[in-house]
């Protein structure tokens, strides 16, 4: 006869009582990391490093909060999976969207030449002037290219 297992029993969760001292230590670490990130802000690391440092420190702080304040360190694999799921799917969204943005100029090469209509003087500029533009005026509003992404500047 089939062995009876109780799903509730298997997923049983316990309350975890963590000594307050641990919370205070975690708080201390958070304070230190906050000071670090503020100090790092005025350095120019170059490239994308500023972003990496800022987000790296933020991720560390977030992990501390999740693991200790939110007790995930002591919880079941299922809960950890749920915690991870939110971030994984957010990651998927960012990854695939950015993949499009950074690889875009593969195809949308700007036109080699545009001959303006009879009385349209200004050739297309790379930095378009956008002003209160007479959208009715044919010619002036035709050309409004925009730079493609350049994440690394």
């Amino acid at each position: 006869m089939a062995h009876i297992t109780d799903p509730i029993q298997r997923d049983h969760e316990e309350h975890h009582v963590i000594p307050p001292r641990n919370y205070v230590i975690v708080f201390g670490l958070l304070v230190v990391l906050t000071i670090l990130t503020v100090l790092a802000a005025n350095f120019q690391f170059g490239g994308l490093l500023n972003e990496v440092v800022a987000l790296g420190i933020a991720t560390m702080k977030a992990s501390l909060v999740i693991l200790f304040f939110m007790h995930v360190r002591y919880s079941t694999p299922l809960l950890r999976l749920v915690v991870a799921a939110g971030f994984i799917f957010f990651g998927i969204m960012v990854l695939f969207t950015m993949a499009d943005f950074v690889s875009r100029d593969w195809r949308s090469t700007p036109p080699r030449q545009i001959v303006a209509p009879v009385e349209q003087a200004p050739p297309p500029v790379t930095e378009p002037t956008l002003g209160p533009q007479p959208t009715q005026a044919v010619g002036q509003d035709e050309v409004r290219p925009r730079g493609t992404v350049n994440p690394g500047r």
């Binding site: 799917f89 998927i92 695939f96 993949a99 499009d100 690889s103 949308s108």
Partner: peptide, 22 residues
Amino acid sequence: GFLVWGHHLFVAGQSVYSAMVF
């Protein structure tokens, strides 16, 4: 199902690279 949304954008001005992946 979360990994395929870009197939709605094949002719929308998405990059060729993304289009292939999707």
